[in-house]
Design a protein around this nucleic acid. Structure first.
Length: 289
DNA sequence: CGCCCTGTTGGGGA
DNA sequence: ATCCCCAACAGGGC
C-alpha cells in the first residue's frame, strides 16, 4: 500500500507526468500550485533518487522535484478508496495515479530548475552521507571543533551529516556510550570514531530491519513497528538498559525527546552540577509539564 | 467527553 | 552560534 522508493521507482521511471494536481498550497510553497503544476506537466521522469531525507524526481529538461516527507508523508499508488489527507495527485501516462498523502501537512515539494539550482539547494542543506567514504572521525571532529552545541544536536544537523534522524541519533549515541548533552567540541577523536561506527551501524540496522535498501524510504505498512523494536533505547523510558539494567531516562535535547542510559552514557560534568543544584536555566528539562 | 501532551522534521526569528 | 517555537493533526493519558 504505502510506497517506498524501490517500489515507486519502477512505476515512474521513464513515464510521463500526464497531470499534476496540488490540493494543498502549503505543499508547493514557496511556489504557487499552478506554477509547480505547469513546470512538471508533460515532462518525463528520468530517475527517482534520494539525497538525505529528500526524494528527488529527476525530470527531463533538468527539472527536479525535491520532495520531503517530514514526519507523516507518504506516496501511495492508486489507493482505493482514496485516502484522506491527500495533498497532491500525480497522474502518469500509464498506471494508476500516485497520491501524496500527509496528515500532518509538514511535507513539501520544491522545484529546482537546472543542475546548478539542484546542487546549490543541497549544498546549502546537506553534509556527507554516513556511507560516503569521506565520512570519518576526522571529518566529524573537524566540523565540531570549538562548538558548544550538544553532540546530539550536532548529529541531527543535516548540514553536518545527511539523513540522521532522532531515533538514529539516540541509538548511535547509546552504542557509542556518549551522553547526548556532551559538547560536540569536546569529544576526542576516539569518541568520534565510536560515533561514526555507531551511526553507520544504526543506519544499516534500520535498513535491514525494514528489508530495505539505502535508497528506500520509511513508512512501509506494518514495518515501522518492527523497525523500532530493533532499537535499544529510543522510547524506552523506565525500561532497563539492555546493557547494565539501569532504567532508561528521558530528556529533551535539541527540542526532541531523547532517551539515554546515564550509566552507560555518563553525563558531562557541567550538567551533573546543574542537576544536583537548583534547576537553573541550563538544566535539562525532564518534563516541565 | 475534554483537556493536555507528545511526536519519524526543518526553518525562521530571537 | 544556538535555542525556542512553530507548522497541523492524531492518538494516548488522565
Amino acid at each position: 500500500m504505502e510506497t517506498i522508493r524501490r517500489q515507486l521507482a519502477p512505476l515512474v521511471q521513464g513515464r510521463k507526468l500526464e497531470r499534476v494536481r496540488i490540493l494543498d498550497p502549503r505543499w508547493s510553497r514557496p511556489l504557487a500550485p499552478a506554477e509547480l503544476e505547469d513546470a512538471l506537466t508533460g515532462r518525463c521522469v528520468l530517475a527517482l533518487g534520494r539525497r538525505g531525507k529528500y526524494l528527488v524526481w529527476e525530470c527531463s529538461g533538468e527539472v527536479y522535484l525535491l520532495q520531503h516527507l517530514r514526519m507523516t508523508g507518504s506516496v501511495l499508488h492508486a489507493p482505493d478508496p482514496p485516502p484522506t489527507h491527500v495533498r497532491a495527485w500525480i497522474e502518469l501516462d500509464r498506471g494508476g495515479p500516485l497520491a501524496i498523502v500527509d496528515p500532518r501537512r509538514f511535507g513539501t515539494g520544491e522545484l529546482a530548475l537546472g543542475e546548478q539550482a539542484l546542487e546549490s539547494f543541497f549544498s546549502a542543506r546537506l553534509g556527507l552521507e554516513p556511507l560516503d567514504e569521506r565520512f570519518s572521525a576526522e571529518y566529524l571532529r573537524g566540523l565540531a571543533g570549538g562548538r558548544q552545541t550538544p553532540v546530539k544536536a550536532f548529529l541531527l544537523d543535516q548540514r553536518k551529516l545527511a539523513g540522521v534522524g532522532n531515533i538514529y541519533a539516540d541509538e548511535a549515541l547509546f552504542r557509542a556510550r556518549i551522553h547526548p548533552l556532551r559538547e560536540a567540541g569536546r569529544l576526542s577523536l576516539a569518541d568520534w570514531e565510536r560515533v561514526r561506527e555507531a551511526v553507520v551501524w544504526a543506519l544499516l540496522a534500520g535498513i535491514e530491519a525494514r528489508g530495505a535498501t539505502i535508497d528506500d524510504f520509511r513508512h512501509v505498512d506494518g514495518v515501522w513497528g518492527s523497525f523500532q523494536d530493533r532499537f535499544q533505547v529510543h522510547r524506552r523510558e523506565g525500561e532497563p538498559c539492555p546493557s547494565c539494567g539501569r532504567p532508561i531516562v528521558k530528556l529533551r535535547v535539541a527540542g526532541r525527546g531523547t532517551y539515554v542510559c546515564e550509566r552507560c552514557q555518563p553525563r558531562p560534568r557541567a550538567f551533573k552540577r546543574q542537576a544536583a543544584g537548583r534547576a537553573g536555566r541550563f538544566a535539562p528539562r525532564s518534563a516541565s509539564r
